[in-house]
Design a protein around this nucleic acid. Sequence first.
DNA 1: CCCTGCTATGAAAGCGGTTACATCATAAGC
DNA 2: GCTTATGATGTAACCGCTTTCATAGCAGGG
Lengths: 344, 344
Amino acid sequence: MAVTIKDVAKAARVSVATVSRALSGSDKVTDETRRQVGAAATKLGYVPHEAARSLSSRRTRCIGVVLPDLHGEFFSELIRGIDRAARTHGLHLLLSSSHGDAAELAAALLAMRGRVDGLLVMSSYADRKVLDNNLQPTLPTVLMNSGEGSERYPALLVDNFGGASAMVRHLVGRGHRHIAMIGGPVENVDARERVAGYTEALEELLPEARPQVLRGDFSEESGYKAGRRLVSMAERPEAIFAANDMMAIGCIFALTEAGLRVPGDIAVAGFDDIPIARYVSPALTTVRVRIAELGELALERLVLAITERGQDRHSVQKMRTELVIRSSCARHSSRMAIVPRSRR
Amino acid sequence: MAVTIKDVAKAARVSVATVSRALSGSDKVTDETRRQVGAAATKLGYVPHEAARSLSSRRTRCIGVVLPDLHGEFFSELIRGIDRAARTHGLHLLLSSSHGDAAELAAALLAMRGRVDGLLVMSSYADRKVLDNNLQPTLPTVLMNSGEGSERYPALLVDNFGGASAMVRHLVGRGHRHIAMIGGPVENVDARERVAGYTEALEELLPEARPQVLRGDFSEESGYKAGRRLVSMAERPEAIFAANDMMAIGCIFALTEAGLRVPGDIAVAGFDDIPIARYVSPALTTVRVRIAELGELALERLVLAITERGQDRHSVQKMRTELVIRSSCARHSSRMAIVPRSRR
DNA sequence: CCCTGCTATGAAAGCGGTTACATCATAAGC
DNA sequence: GCTTATGATGTAACCGCTTTCATAGCAGGG
């Protein structure tokens, strides 16, 4: 029913081999022949059958993308970056998202077998065991933001630690002394690293201050709840550093609702710089992560791994972050209000 | 190198045909044989080669998803819905996103040929011509939110018209008389329908008022610009209805920046109910579109089209919308301030 | 005991390409 | 002018699986 390479061969009065050669790149084919084959193909509306092609060429021109249960901007930006890069290489994307636990991840990895030339994996559950058990060892794989397992697979990581330190440095520089953090999901590597960056920077800059981490899970709701807790605290922190923007936004919501002014009464900072961060009020000071770029780099890395099989497997690339200063973190001044003018 | 069906056959001491039957569902195979084959397969770590399978079975178990240059929540929610539904059917998703013009769309459609069992298409450019030229007629296809072409393909549409009318009715009910709209990209069907819903509802409810549509393109920035224009208008509208939430948020930003209070001085409403809509300040009154559900329904519709080939092709399903009333649209009262008490 | 009907299994023909190898024509070298 | 190198094209063997058709074994009816 569908037009195959044979039909084209017949129409162009050549063999199937010649058609194959003429259409797939510049083997030894006369320009004249190529033209004729091309004409016949267009006239018949021929499109090669991909399954047949992959079967004999042993390449699918497909990349598997396995992602956790991501929401919002992060997800779409990541895909955007991957897709953009994939298109320049003529690669397709086989997407499997929303994996909430190790079993689902394992199932997704298994299902990818034989369908793709390489794999891009992001998951909190992508540790060595799960990966080793469910990946055929020959399948090129690049991890994104999955700390574990990076000793065996090339990986791209976001410099969460550095970004969080930079933010703490910024807050301290603005005069804040009592800085609390809202953490992320315990199983999330990014969240853990951000907290670590906060803790270590704080210990370094303000040895006498002790870190205070409120519970959170990256959802706005958990940020909101943390905000409520903050409101009712006896010794309220001067600044709150949320491990992601959504929680920061939820937190601001709770604080404002309770009649506190941000940043007047309390400073709030986030992490990620999701697009909405500029539009909340007050505009959010945050740490920018170039997510699309992360996806793009990961794909390029994978393409490399596919073409130069087996070389340089263990390299880890770290994505820089960038401090974005907006209006949600003013200079801390309550201390000044107490200290008499003359003493300043 | 990789273990094939032959290796399994040899290990289980049966023919490849038997292995195929034993592994792929319940043909006539003895329980004993099936057990042995299963054991051999597990022992060898056999995973069928998908390309080979699709080639001979003429089914890829893959669905193509072709999307425009979507951003943010809309994109991720849509994929989430599609993915969820696909997984229940054991289908994979071949994703191609970010198509900014008809040529890119055409290329994406072509590239899907032979790779998928069916297609989910969303695009402003998905009109009859582009679709007819680039889709093989036998490939089941479901359109999402692409008004044109729905006379030939099954389609899922969001009831933009109804949603916009409902919002206008709400605003009028709250006492607003001068209601302006910020439109979307001209080529976007949703945007056009929302504007149409606004215009017609206005004409019906307030025949003497004349519709006023400011330019916008769905980006927050265009909303921001529209807001700036509003601020400097001689006769400022009492309420602004943005064709999507992002523009509403940008608009609020511009208004607030200029010292106007929302909703005190001017009411603002949006469309979509993206998650962030609750967290901006003031929380946005908007029209909710259940995006994940849209994706889910579209996939189910496609599965139907695939299994019952050629039946019921032209059906159009419309997704209800839902008014979400938050605090960005107060009751209008400026008129009351002018009109003396006694006259009321 | 033979024939028929039924079922589990095997043999083999594709599915639609790619590609190694054979072939043939032509140009170059002697 | 004959041999050989060269390059375009054809032939055919796969790639790994599904599926049709043939076969063999067996039970049951006559």
